[in-house]
């Protein structure tokens, strides 16, 4: 039965290679996108932390998004 699934009447190589290609590409793309996102989050957090205390307070109070980015970054480490 397993053999049938792999061979598929001789079409196995075509079927499996297209499925593996699709999901491999999707997987790599997912990983790359995630890595870029994390990189930007990290850089953003770094820049906020480099600001002076007052400025940091202003930014986080005025922008909900900025504080969200910071909190989601803190969650991941």
């Amino acid at each position: 039965m397993i053999n049938d699934l792999i061979l598929m009447d001789g079409y196995g190589i075509f079927v499996w290679s297209s499925f593996i290609f699709t999901f491999l590409v999707c997987g790599i793309f997912y990983y790359k996108t995630r890595k870029t996102l994390k990189k930007y989050e990290k850089e953003f957090a770094k820049e906020i932390n480099e600001l002076s205390v007052e400025q940091k307070k202003i930014v986080l109070e005025n922008s909900k998004i900025a504080s969200k980015i910071l909190s989601s970054y803190n969650k991941t480490i």
Partner: peptide, 21 residues
Amino acid sequence: IFLMKYKTEIIRIKKKNLKRL
């Protein structure tokens, strides 16, 4: 993927705004 990319783009914009401060 779209949600992740969209998030990245927003962070990029916010980072630019931060520099203007």
